[in-house]
């Protein structure tokens, strides 16, 4: 097992248990790996850094939303790689590029390189949030952007605390779908 795998896995397990700092550290590290991965993959077919950033954000959202599907008895790198590659193939399919053009890659390639050079993606988070149903938008804005606690968000959005949690989860999923549709160029 490589040190990268070990460290990332430890962060993932902690983030599954609800440790926000680990979750943040995990997403930051993965974003650098995934940026390098997507830039290289899209570079092969003549696409640019902005599209790589779009895809990276799609993948980060998916990793966040689906983090309950990671089984800690399994290695972590293949899990990330499967999501990253799934999102890549999905992107290429939406853009009518032949999937046959995607070279087969190994799971560890997803964490092989780092890339810090971020560019803006084409999504405007606040504008996307306005297109969500009111409760979802309100819950995400309050908790994920303003940083209110679940209890405060419940009062602010006038819904119950469990409903705040459900609306955040559904809202992020809806957001991921909207972002996926927008990357159709």
């Amino acid at each position: 097992m490589t040190t990268t795998e070990k460290e990332l896995k430890a962060l993932m397990v902690a983030s599954q248990e609800g440790d926000a700092a680990s979750h943040r550290a995990l997403l930051e590290r993965l974003s650098r790996h995934l940026r390098a991965y997507y830039k290289r993959r899209l570079g092969h077919i003549g696409r640019g850094a902005a599209e790589a950033e779009d895809l990276l954000q799609e993948a980060l959202l998916a990793i966040h939303i689906q983090r309950h599907t990671y089984d800690p008895t399994e290695p972590f790198t293949p899990w990330v790689h499967a999501i990253a590659r799934y999102k890549l193939i999905d992107f290429l399919r939406r853009n009518r590029t032949s999937v046959a053009d995607v070279p087969i890659d190994e799971a560890n390639e997803v964490t092989a390189n780092d890339d810090h050079l971020s560019v803006e993606s084409s999504f405007d988070l606040r504008r996307l949030l306005k297109r969500l149903p009111e409760k979802m938008g309100c819950a995400i804005e309050a908790v994920k952007i303003e940083g209110l606690s679940i209890a405060e968000a419940a009062r602010h959005c006038r819904i119950s605390e469990s409903s705040v949690k459900v609306n955040i989860h559904r809202g992020l999923k809806a957001l991921a779908t909207m972002i996926a549709q927008r990357t159709q160029t």
Partner: peptide, 14 residues
């Protein structure tokens, strides 16, 4: 949207 903004949002109240 910048990626670090997205990460900040996703890491709030995990």
């Amino acid at each position: 949207m910048r990626t670090d903004e997205l990460i900040t949002a996703l890491s709030m109240n995990v």
